[in-house]
Design a protein around this nucleic acid. Structure first.
Lengths: 334, 334
DNA sequence: CTGAAAGCGCTTACAG
DNA sequence: CTGAAAGCGCTTACAG
């Protein structure tokens, strides 16, 4: 039914070994033979079975990519970049969505190992190694993006989250705000933790006391943004400004704000982590800090390909600079 | 190094065959043996090699998913649904992004076959079978989502695009508009074609002549939405209302409109195909027609799983109803 | 109910 | 420069 390497071999009157060598572009093959083989491949339409190859050489041409939320455009841009890079190097991408769920992440890690992927790029759900240890021990090439793993020394791609959050909050302080609400990812997610640290640092710098009742943390999903903004606005002394810790929390918060009939920035100033394309087409446009997402994905793919090629090369940590984009969503108060 | 089935076998004092049978939950195995095997698996931490299994049984537990734009949230929701369904059935998803590029799509189709995926779900870049024929001829289970393939009878999941577009345009006509611009995906993409037909049908129904200069088509990407809106607004007699044919074209168009300082709906009414979460949090909120994206992905996964199980079952075409969501972006004129 | 053995389609060390 | 043969780790028809 399907055509195998030996079919090509018999048509070209050579051994399977020779066909394999021609296809792999190995040297020391007579030009005439090479031609004959290529001809035969063409005429019977041979397509290599990558599964058999993987079993034999014990490694595939596949990069595993585990992200924590496929519906978050931030990760989508990352996926896009990884895919572009992989494609350019004849690798395919095996994508899994952990959905911020540690059990799902573990299962997918097992799957990746079971499928003998060449390497894994992961956005981990937790700050501790956990199931990632399996990959590490099995010496599977590994790159961590966006977040960190604290207890393992790994190739990493990220940004300075604390600084970015600090810049955003400082912008609010510059505008005269001191009651600044924060809606963040939970601290087990390192980006959540670091961004919170940046928030605290900015307040401290200006001698503003951190009011714990103004800080809400949870899974970085829209529904929590929605819930947290309600809690903050129901406070006896609600904040005059809001810092949202990622794009999904932002959308949730905007829903809550709109439903109360509040106008940004008249009634509430807002600054957001992550920049989305549409932040600049709406009125008021949203002040945000942008991560170079595509570059981050690109760098992650680059690191994994280098690590696959040379498993013993020194660990690299790539850090990008986020960019503060001041727009119209924060206003000066007295 | 890695532990194989025969390691389990020797530890449990049985044959590899027996281990395999226990792991596959085959009947006719003595309870005592079953226990011993499971124990052994546990103690040495055996994890099956899925590559070897795939080679042996000539089919993997992987569903191939080829979408045309991974950065489009519409497809992202689709991916999410497919992934959820696959996960629930112990399948993994092999995701490829054709980027609306036929050559890339062809390459990925070859890859899927080479990796012996159990089935393929595809959002095709073209209306004609082309490289999809390969899958069809090789009898690889196949489901087409969102768009159509005209010359092949396949399991399909979609919506009534013409009707949805018709509803959207009728809403504009109800508001008194007759010069209605349309920014659409090119007609080789069947959704683009069908939505255009719906636009034409609505105009015809009200005796409004179709003015070809008001219609622009191209790849459904933001940059084209941007370009097309500029062209339409530069017309000697620009449209009073705009119908955008997908979410990316909408974002592009909104950029162009904002840059000219035009106010929606005062200066231009806008209705959009595809609903995004943020359409309802902005002011004015955007009138749009929503596809049940998650359901569509779910149905596609369901179809492919059924097709894998029973390759000879009759072809199914699943059609969903889009929902018109009237908001604030279109206004009545004279 | 269980085992020995063949075979899925490749690649590569070995021999010549 | 080329071929015969082993082997990657499974599953399953066959035999008992």
């Amino acid at each position: 039914m399907t055509v195998r390497i030996k079919d090509v071999a018999s048509l070209a009157n050579v051994s399977s070994a020779t066909v394999s060598r021609v296809l792999a572009n190995k040297p020391y093959i007579r030009d005439e033979i090479r031609h004959r083989v290529l001809q035969a491949v063409e005429t019977i339409g041979y397509q290599p079975n990558r599964v058999a190859r993987t079993l034999r050489v014990q490694s595939s041409q596949i990069i595993g990519l585990i992200i924590s939320d496929i519906q978050n455009p931030f990760f989508t841009a990352l996926v896009r970049a990884v895919e572009d890079q992989a494609y350019a190097h004849q690798y395919a991408v095996f994508l899994c969505n952990s959905d911020e769920n540690y059990e799902k992440e573990s299962l997918y890690i097992d799957l990746m190992m079971s499928e003998r992927v060449a390497g894994v790029i992961i956005v981990p759900t937790r700050e501790t190694a956990g199931s990632i240890n399996k990959l590490y021990k099995a010496k599977v090439p590994l790159v961590v993006v966006d977040r960190q793993i604290r207890d393992l020394d790994l190739d990493t791609v990220g940004i300075d989250n604390a600084k970015a959050a600090h810049d955003l909050v400082t912008h609010l302080i510059d505008m005269g705000h001191s009651r600044i609400g924060a809606i963040m990812a939970s601290p087990e997610i390192t980006t959540g933790y670091e961004r919170y640290q940046g928030y605290v640092a900015a307040l401290n710098e200006w001698g503003i006391e951190v009011d714990p009742s103004l800080v809400r943390t949870g899974l970085p999903k829209e529904i929590h943004g929605r819930q947290f903004v309600d809690e903050l606005l129901d406070l006896p002394a609600p904040p005059t400004a809001l810092f949202t810790g990622n794009n999904l929390l932002t959308v949730g918060a905007l829903h809550g704000i709109k439903d109360r009939g509040l106008i940004i920035p008249r009634d509430l100033s807002v600054v957001a982590f992550d920049d989305m394309e549409w932040y600049s087409v709406i009125s008021p446009s949203l002040t945000a800090v942008a991560q170079p997402t595509y570059e981050m994905g690109w760098a992650a793919a680059d690191l994994i390909l280098k690590r696959i090629e040379n498993p013993n090369k020194p660990i690299e940590k790539v850090l990008y600079n986020p960019e503060l984009r001041i727009r119209e969503s924060a206003r000066k108060i007295n």
